[in-house]
Amino acid sequence: MDLILTALELGLMSSLTVLALFLSYSMLGVCDLSTDGCFTFGAAVGAVVALSGHPFLAILAAMGAGALSGFVTAFLQTKMGVDSLLSGIVVNTGLYSINIAVMGNSSLLNMNKTETIFTKAKALLGGSFLGPQYKLVVIVLFAALVVLFLAFFLKTRIGLAIRATGDNPDMVRSSSINPVKTTIIGLCISNSFTALSGCLLAQYQKSVNVNIGSGMLTIALASLLIGNTFIGRRRPISLRLVGAVLGAFIFRLVYTAALRLNMPAFMLKLVSSVIVVIAISGPYLQQRFPLLMRKLGKKGRTRNA
């Protein structure tokens, strides 16, 4: 039971990154490779602010930092002529140095005695029936807020414009939608959620190291694609958002189960990579399968003849 609870907590925390990718990858059509660095950036900024005694301000600071990083990534690819994938990689690399600088030239920060939003919640919920699950309460609250925000936002005019930018770039090019604007706004918002996700994890595990975000993009992408297979792509947005959260939880659950079956912990990243490959190539190969069979069949016949 405890294991499932931990999986739920960790899954919901990473679901914020999954929701960020839902916005940037599924809606805007940008594969944001700065996700790993941005996750750490949020964790580092949040930790530093929390260490100075402001756990709530830490949340805002981390989101602001994430938005800034998203802005740089978007600016590079819309205004500076840097390829979209490359701008993510460049920002990701740059953030590594920035993250160490933010953490005061150290690659590890400890928050064992620091007040976090989790300790605050523990004190607040103390005697009530929610008391024992104070961590889960905080995490559910954040995940729900982000889902509600995105469900609202993606139906607004600017939200529709962001979705159109990813859905039909040809149409957007000849319409009054400015793809520069939609890309910048979309990436600012999505990265602020990625950073929030990192900030929560840092406060949850009471420490940050500079590699906390490494592999996060692939893990979140795997979760997103798992959610897609459960919910389907042609469903209403709000349902797909819930699917993204569900995908993050399922991923964690499977991972926890695999750990119980003595899979070493360091396999996590390989597993996430394999899931992403299967989820993306699966439908492609399925489509190609009849053609492959026909080709093979043809070869077979000529050989026989």
Binding site: K155, R157, L160, A161, R163, A164, D167, N168, M171, S175, I177, R233, R234
Partner: peptide, 13 residues
């Protein structure tokens, strides 16, 4: 028009 968006969303845009 954007294929994954609904008719009304395309018109709203």
């Amino acid at each position: 028009s954007a294929p994954n968006m609904s008719i009304e969303e395309n018109l709203a845009l």
